[in-house]
Each structure stands twice: as C-alpha cells, then as structure tokens.
Lab assay of single mutants.
Amino acid sequence: EPSQADLDALLSAVRDNRLSIEQAVTLLTPSSGGGSGGGSMDAKEILTRFKDGGLDRAAAQALLAGRTPA
C-alpha cells in the first residue's frame, strides 16, 4: 500500500509530466490488473482531475489513499 510520501511523489511526477497518468495508475495498482479498488473514482480519473486542476493535492491524495486496498 502506498504511503502518503509515495502518493505525494507520484502526484508531483504526474503534474510535472515526469510520469504519465497510465504509468501512475500501473504503479498504484500493481497486482489488481489495473482495476479500481472499488472506490467511487478510479485512480486514472483522480489523477486526470488532479492534473487538470479539478482536484487539489490533498484531495487527490485522500482519494487515492482511500481507494487503495489495505
């Protein structure tokens, strides 16, 4: 399960175009075949909204942490 520091680094990389959204989703869902963790939004949607400015960093982190299976 990614830590808050991992999520923060991942969000920074996506925002700075050092990591594509697809690459980030793969890192967030290493063994689930890329499927959502059952959250209301999947990781790709969360990351896309964050990059487009629709979500701030704290909200994106909380959503990603919340949808990651324990």
Rank of each mutant, 00 (worst) to 15 (best):
E1K: 11
E1M: 12
E1G: 10
S3W: 13
S3P: 10
S3L: 13
Q4L: 13
Q4G: 10
A5K: 06
A5V: 12
A5Y: 13
A5M: 15
D6R: 07
D6G: 09
L7S: 02
L7M: 08
L7Y: 07
L7G: 02
D8S: 06
D8E: 12
A9F: 12
A9M: 13
A9G: 09
A9I: 08
A9E: 14
L10C: 03
L10E: 00
L10I: 10
L11R: 00
L11Q: 01
L11H: 00
S12L: 08
S12R: 10
S12M: 06
A13F: 04
A13T: 02
A13G: 05
V14I: 09
V14W: 02
R15C: 13
R15F: 09
R15P: 00
R15D: 05
D16M: 06
D16Y: 04
D16P: 00
N17P: 00
N17R: 06
N17M: 05
N17G: 15
R18Y: 08
R18C: 09
R18N: 06
L19W: 04
L19R: 02
L19N: 01
L19T: 04
S20P: 04
S20Q: 04
I21T: 02
I21R: 00
E22L: 07
E22H: 06
E22D: 13
E22F: 05
E22W: 04
E22S: 08
Q23L: 09
Q23A: 10
Q23I: 08
Q23M: 09
Q23H: 08
Q23G: 06
Q23W: 04
A24I: 03
A24T: 02
A24Q: 00
A24Y: 01
V25W: 03
V25K: 02
V25G: 03
L27C: 07
L27H: 05
L27F: 05
L27V: 05
L28R: 00
L28P: 01
L28E: 00
L28C: 04
L28G: 01
T29K: 10
T29L: 07
T29P: 10
P30G: 15
P30W: 10
P30N: 12
P30M: 07
S31Y: 08
S31G: 10
S31T: 12
S32F: 12
S32W: 09
S32Y: 13
G33F: 10
G33W: 09
G33L: 12
G33R: 08
G33T: 13
G33M: 08
G34W: 03
G34Q: 09
G34E: 10
G34S: 12
G34N: 13
G34L: 13
G35C: 10
G35N: 10
G35A: 08
S36M: 14
S36G: 12
G37T: 12
G37K: 08
G37N: 14
G38M: 15
G39N: 11
S40E: 06
S40Y: 14
S40F: 14
M41E: 10
M41L: 10
M41C: 08
D42R: 12
D42M: 09
A43D: 04
A43G: 04
A43F: 15
E45P: 02
I46T: 03
I46P: 00
L47R: 00
L47I: 05
L47K: 00
L47A: 02
T48S: 08
T48M: 09
T48E: 11
R49A: 08
R49C: 08
R49I: 06
R49G: 03
F50K: 00
F50D: 00
D52F: 05
D52K: 06
D52A: 10
D52Q: 12
D52V: 05
D52W: 05
G53R: 04
G53S: 03
G53K: 04
G53N: 04
G53D: 03
G53E: 03
G54S: 15
G54P: 02
G54M: 13
G54L: 15
G54H: 13
G54F: 11
G54K: 15
L55S: 01
L55Q: 01
D56M: 04
D56L: 04
D56Q: 04
D56S: 10
D56H: 04
R57M: 14
R57H: 10
R57C: 06
A58K: 10
A58R: 07
A58P: 04
A59Q: 14
A59R: 06
A60W: 00
A60R: 00
A60H: 00
Q61T: 11
Q61M: 15
Q61I: 15
Q61K: 15
Q61D: 05
A62N: 14
A62Q: 14
A62D: 15
A62R: 13
L63Q: 07
L63V: 03
L63C: 07
L63D: 03
L64D: 01
L64T: 01
L64V: 02
A65Y: 05
A65K: 10
A65P: 04
G66K: 09
G66V: 09
G66I: 08
R67I: 15
R67N: 15
R67H: 11
T68I: 12
T68M: 13
T68H: 08
T68G: 08
P69A: 08
A70R: 10
A70N: 04
